[in-house]
Simulated assay, not measured.
Amino acid sequence: MRTFAERFYSALENQLNEVSINGESLAEQYKTSITLCKKAMAKLKNYISSYSFEDKEDEIHFFKTVKPQFYSKYIYFINVYNFIMQRPLGGDDILKDYINYELADIKRFFDHNQAFYQYYRSGSTQMDEVYFTRGGFDVHVELEDFEEDELYSTSHDYKLSKIIANEKYLDYLNLELQKTIEHDEQPQEIGLELPLTWTFNKTDLVELIYALVALGVFNNGNTEIKSVVSFFQTVFHVDLGAYYHKYTDITRRKKERTSFLDKLKLALLRRIDEKLDDVTSPQQKMKFE
């Protein structure tokens, strides 16, 4: 099951990345993404309907990890699509109010689910058998987040999907809010005379972004390539265009598959060595070696 789920999820991500470069409007892109996720969810459910879990651990893995991967994307795309379609006309102040309302709504959701959210973010497992195996649903608890199909749902898998989706939606909203702020004034904390502009090869930046996301350095690994790409484009004033095609080119390299990362490592080591060479005392230099 795990191998199938990983391949199936990878195929979905490839489809979603293709959507982002097909030239459609943002609203149409998200609408198409919703459709793709919905189809993928249906196929996943159909596969599991004829699959027998090997043990409790296998069942927990599916409802805690696999299913929320698919459902969280679906919920996230719906959230962003609704945001775009309901975006008010007017100046930045009106847009800020709209974004802040959405942010407040997300805060209410996390406050309402604080205990389970802490359980999820802390990586706890002691309640997994209760939360992520079927048959433990209490009609008086978690009613709003339980799906009707008890053979394909646990008491908390849908809630976890919403948490993951809202974390991603939070990233999206904060980025949109930052854009409105930048229209008003240069952020004071940056204090640069000139903006930072990416002047290296764009493929190098794509390689760096994918490496950072692969390592999970943002939001404990719960973020999408799209969000990070959008952030880097804004901060470094660069248009990465069809960034997924650049990533595909990287994966097809026969030699030096991580050429830019290798250059970064060499550059840092060279800088460290130069710093050591500046140390005049041999005794001081030995401390660094």
Rank of each mutant, 00 (worst) to 15 (best):
Y47L: 01
D157Y: 10
Q178M: 13
K179I: 07
E24T: 10
K45A: 05
Q15K: 08
F146M: 15
G136Q: 08
V235S: 11
I181P: 11
D55T: 07
N174E: 07
F109E: 06
D204P: 10
R121G: 10
F232C: 08
E18V: 10
F200V: 12
N174Y: 11
L205S: 00
N79G: 07
N174L: 13
K96P: 06
K226H: 15
M41F: 13
T65L: 04
L175W: 06
R253G: 00
F137N: 10
V235G: 04
L240E: 10
I272K: 02
I48N: 09
L26N: 11
S49N: 11
Y51R: 02
E224M: 13
I164Q: 05
N79C: 09
T133N: 02
S227R: 05
Y101M: 15
D278P: 04
S20M: 05
E147C: 08
M85L: 10
I94G: 00
L143T: 09
Y81V: 05
F83I: 04
A267L: 05
E185F: 14
S52I: 11
S124Q: 13
L177C: 09
Y119G: 06
L177G: 07
Q114G: 12
E129Q: 09
L266C: 04
F116R: 06
R257T: 05
L240Y: 11
W198I: 03
L205Q: 07
N222L: 03
S33R: 08
V206H: 01
F4D: 03
R271K: 15
F260A: 06
E59N: 07
D249K: 03
N22R: 06
